[in-house]
């Protein structure tokens, strides 16, 4: 898949060039001249040559999709994930409801309650993927980096609820090690530490 890297180079403008288009013939005579000119010029043959050479070079670009996959952009906004804290494995979501509020499709709903330690926990969290437009606002607003977008883009399923419940999105405890921080919307910028003003503490 050596050719794939070039897809990551989004700066394509240097390869642009201007196409010269000759004025369109007006009189029948001009049209006839053009036919003759074009027929005598080897344009048609050049066309044939290009395709033939391409065939012989056999420089194939096909990605055989289900077997091979293109790497997705790290900022890709796929099916959501609910993350856990890396050290404790506790759920990050605190049930603040900001995602629920900001969602422009109004498709997030959460249920919360105090747990046995008196902390607020989301007992249930759903996203209605029939309505979600993958705008990323929820990931952006989340103060805990709890709801993020995953890399998954294969959303076809028999039931749209398939992806939408908390247990589907939450990192399973045994997969905690594989949990990756999301670098896209809402993640702290590399300079975040520098920008923060610290609160003076007396201890």
């Amino acid at each position: 898949m050596s050719g794939l890297e070039q897809f990551q180079d989004r700066n394509v403008s240097q390869n642009y060039y201007r196409v010269k288009i000759e004025p369109y013939p007006k009189t029948p005579w001009e049209k006839f001249k053009r036919v003759v000119r074009k027929s005598l010029k080897p344009d048609l043959l050049i066309g044939l040559k290009i395709t033939l050479l391409e065939m012989l070079r056999f420089n194939i670009h096909t990605i055989q999709y289900p077997k091979e996959k293109l790497p997705v952009s790290p900022r890709f906004r796929g099916i959501h994930r609910l993350l856990r804290l890396l050290e404790s494995g506790n759920e990050r979501c605190i049930g603040c409801g900001l995602c629920e509020k900001i969602c422009i499709s109004n498709c997030i709903r959460i249920d919360t309650k105090p747990d046995e330690n008196g902390r607020k926990i989301p007992t249930e969290y759903t996203i209605n993927f029939g309505r979600c437009i993958f705008c990323g606002y929820c990931a952006e607003v989340c103060p805990e980096l709890a709801i993020v977008h995953g890399q998954e883009y294969e959303y076809a399923s028999e039931q749209r609820a398939q992806f939408a419940m908390k247990e589907d999105m939450l990192t399973p405890l045994d997969k905690l090690k594989e949990q990756k921080e999301y670098p896209g919307f809402g993640a702290p910028t590399p300079a975040a530490d520098k920008l923060i003003k610290k609160t003076p503490l007396a201890y």
Partner: peptide, 9 residues
């Protein structure tokens, strides 16, 4: 009421 919802909802 404690922790059952957010007031703006």
């Amino acid at each position: 009421y404690h922790y059952t919802t957010n007031s703006w909802e």
